[in-house]
Amino acid sequence: MDATAFAQETGPTITLLEVKDSPETRSVSFILSKTDLATANALRRVMIAEVPTMAIDLVEFESNTSVLTDEFLAHRLGLIPLNSEQVGTITYTRECSCQQYCPQCSVELHLNVRCTEDHTREVTTRDLVSSHTSIAPVLNGPNDRGILIAKLRKGQEINLRCIAKKGTAKEHAKWSPCAGVAFEYDPHNRLRHTTYWIEDDVKSEWPVSANGRFEPEVAEDEPFDYNAKPEAFYMTVEGTGALDPKEIVTTGLRILQAKLSLVQLLLKEIAEERGAVARPPMNGFH
């Protein structure tokens, strides 16, 4: 079958449901249909774990007289979402030509706060000063107080330097651009992929999800179709603020494509090495 015909005839379709763009939630909801569980799940997995963002990876403490330990603070700093729209301009440190890290593969942030007043000083992401114009802690407008990092009493101080690097959530979840990815299929449990725990009656005890409105209800006397396969997948991608949710979806698909293209390119090399008929070797690995 011709490749483009493949995409047109049986290719998946997308129905956009909702795009939320408020300080509380940034998400995109859509239905991915006419495809298989495997491909829908590949998209879900790639969005969670393989879309690169920026996150604080190294922290150097000049002084920390707060009640929190250095490693506690370092871990907290790592989990702060940084605006990663410009992540494409940054290279991975492991691929960079520098010795350790440099402006091409990292962004420096400073936190220098000392409490001099009698009341508690709250240290938030607003106190984190980035050396980059856009890669900085995510803030939702001028009224956002930022994420609380620590509280200081009089005389206590925190003075540290952070290095933010590009990475993916395969390495550490702090690099995930997704706060959550909702993934649902078959809201009426027509395929019986799940068994509900019930006291008396499924319908009264298990309310149907909001996605139930897109599919017909299962009739009382309907025979069970054991050949049926899930076809529509209801997905909601909620971002941490590091990336726009729409961006997460498109970048995820692009990364999936890139992975496949790389395998295909290298497979082609193997096939050419072995001639038209590629025969598995008889002795060990090749």
Binding site: F6, A7, G11, P12, I14, F30, T35, T250, Q257, L260
Partner: peptide, 11 residues
Amino acid sequence: IDLTAHVKETF
């Protein structure tokens, strides 16, 4: 690859 390209385009 075609399938992912198609989904991306559609989206």
